[in-house]
Design a protein around this nucleic acid. Structure first.
Length: 501
RNA sequence: GCUCCGUUAGUGUAGUCAGGCCAAGCAUAAGGGACUCUCAAUCCCUCGACUCGGGUCCAAAUCCCGAACGGAGCACCA
């Protein structure tokens, strides 16, 4: 093995090519992760994304977005963005714009946008339809009361109201005859259903909050289980991808399909993904932004799509990650290690290298020749160009405090791409004719005195300060600061956002 | 407590529907090495898993039963 290794890569490849061509072929067949086929696809598919417009999309949303997009692209058909704004109390008017933007930015193609608050008459009509068939009734029980009865499989006093009267009561309800909380429309299912959460469930409730889009036009709003079932059918969905947390809801919605004789879409319930770190609820972030704790929805500390894109994560990375995660029903935790590694793979080849000296200390190099060095922006992609570090007359340089502290008196270190120096007291001394051996001499990066001040904002909220090469003027976008990590440069060229190592 | 779902290495997954080619593949992490004037990238090697117990079968990660563990739901939220 050692012998083989000592040959170097090209030599080994040549030998393998000559002697064992079949190995190389096998190598190329390396399979990409592929999503499983969907059941019962007839020609094309119709699928949907159904976020509630309570804020912009976050990391968790990208999974369903990418998966749906992938399948629609595979089979052809339509991807519908359905904004579920039937709870006026939980709507951010700006989200109607932010969500399509976020989707577009991660490369998800939306064919049609549906807004539920524009479809209220449809829901009312379907509700009347079910009431008339005796599948729903207007209930005046208190929330607690109804819950208690259901747990005991007992009917509430309003369950037997005849359809005629229920229809009248429903019209009263939506036109504002009852106080908030006083009346609901309940779907009749089976009081003896073994799963208590499937017994008679609420389809409409009164919501007095002013709706950002419909104002005070509507007084009673459908619950998601009702509007989702109606829309999934009316929009002709063939396949529905949703989280496991929706399993009970799927079962509830089946009743609507069954009562109407509608054909069910194919449902898939993928497992929950635990996002590491504190789970920040949209409402908490919004509050934080208002109070100035966060700079906005794209604050580097947040896991919103806009924050992650701003830091330099690539649309391709989201896609690869979620395709690899697939549709499994197992709960898993999100792995930043793997996510970052995928992103690194996407960006490395085009990320220009720069020296960023964190916590710089200024030291003098005695008897060093004033000189300039020319370094490629990328060690393997010389076509990305070169940058220059100019020592000039000033014998002073910056190195990282950490590197200085690790350097014993008399010890030698390599100033990358320059020359060797050794520590002598509080300064460095140029080492003439010192042969450089990377195996024994540690390499550190450095900057000529006079380099620009710079700071890096990190996702944990901390800030690294230091100095950056003047040639940052020639670089934009994502850069790799050597021995530090990948960052996204800001337009001002005075700061960057930390991406990952 | 009730209902439903799941359980492959530290992490993410392939394989499970149609049992044998799985003494379990890939990625990532970790350790070692090659290369390299970055602690990056690239390349090589190593480490490491079918939750447990029964059953069916010539043969089980794969089918059946049970247990344990984990998760989701049990809202006039979505």
């Amino acid at each position: 093995m050692e012998q083989v290794n000592s040959l170097g890569r090209t030599a080994v490849e040549e030998i393998v090519q000559k002697e064992f061509p079949e190995f190389l072929e096998k190598e190329e067949k390396k399979e990409e992760h592929r999503l499983p086929d969907l059941r019962n696809v007839r020609g094309s598919v119709v699928m949907r994304l159904a976020p509630s417009p309570s804020g912009p999309l976050h990391l968790g949303h990208t999974r369903m977005s990418i998966l749906n997009d992938e399948y629609v692209k595979r089979y052809g058909g339509e991807l519908i963005l359905r904004l579920e704004d039937t709870n006026p109390a939980n709507i951010d008017p700006e989200a109607y714009e932010m969500i399509p933007e976020d989707l577009n930015n991660i490369g998800v193609k939306i064919h049609r946008i549906i807004i539920q608050s524009e479809r209220m008459e449809i829901y009312y009509a379907e509700a009347r339809n079910l009431i008339a068939k005796g599948h729903a009734y207007v209930c005046f029980c208190a929330a607690e009361e109804l819950r208690k009865l259901k747990l005991q499989s007992l009917a509430c006093p309003h369950r037997d109201t005849d359809p005629e009267k229920s229809l009248k009561l429903f019209d009263d309800m939506i036109s504002g005859a009852f106080k908030p909380g006083a009346a609901t429309l309940v779907i009749q299912t089976d009081l003896f259903h073994p799963n208590p959460s499937l017994r008679d469930w609420i389809a409409f409730r009164i919501s007095p909050a002013k709706h950002p889009r419909t104002g005070e036009r509507y007084y009673a709003f459908p619950m998601m289980n009702f509007s989702v079932a109606v829309d999934d059918h009316k929009l002709g969905l063939t396949h529905v991808l949703r989280g496991k947390d929706q399993l009970n809801n799927t079962d509830r919605q089946r009743f609507i399909f069954q009562y109407n004789g509608w054909t069910l879409p194919e449902y898939y319930h993928y497992g929950m993904i635990a996002l590491p770190g504190e789970k920040l609820k949209t409402s908490i972030i919004r509050k934080g932004i208002r109070e100035g704790k966060y700079t906005g929805w794209d604050d580097v500390r947040l896991n919103t799509v806009r924050a992650l894109l701003r830091r330099g994560y690539q649309p391709e990375t989201f896609r690869r990650y979620w395709i690899e995660s697939g549709l499994r029903e197992i709960d898993a935790s999100f792995s930043w290690d793997i996510f970052n590694s995928m992103n690194r793979e996407v960006i490395d080849g085009t990320s220009k290298r720069l020296f960023f000296v964190k916590d710089p200390i200024s030291v003098i190099v005695r008897s060093g020749p004033g000189t300039a060095v020319r370094i490629p922006f990328h060690p393997e992609h010389k076509d990305l160009g070169f940058r220059e570090l100019q020592m000039g007359e000033d014998p002073g340089i910056y190195i990282q405090a950490e590197d200085w502290n690790n350097l014993n008196d008399g010890a030698t270190v390599r100033l990358k791409d320059l020359y060797n120096v050794s520590r002598s007291g509080e300064g460095l001394v140029y080492q003439v004719d010192q042969e450089f051996n990377p195996k024994t001499t540690k390499i550190i990066h450095w900057l000529p005195r006079g380099s620009n001040e710079f700071s890096v904002m990190k996702p944990d909220g901390s800030i690294d300060t230091g100095r950056i090469e003047k040639s940052i003027e020639l670089v934009e976008g994502i850069s790799q600061f050597e021995r530090y990590g990948y960052v996204k440069l800001q337009k001002d060229k005075k700061s960057a956002l930390f991406l990952h190592r």
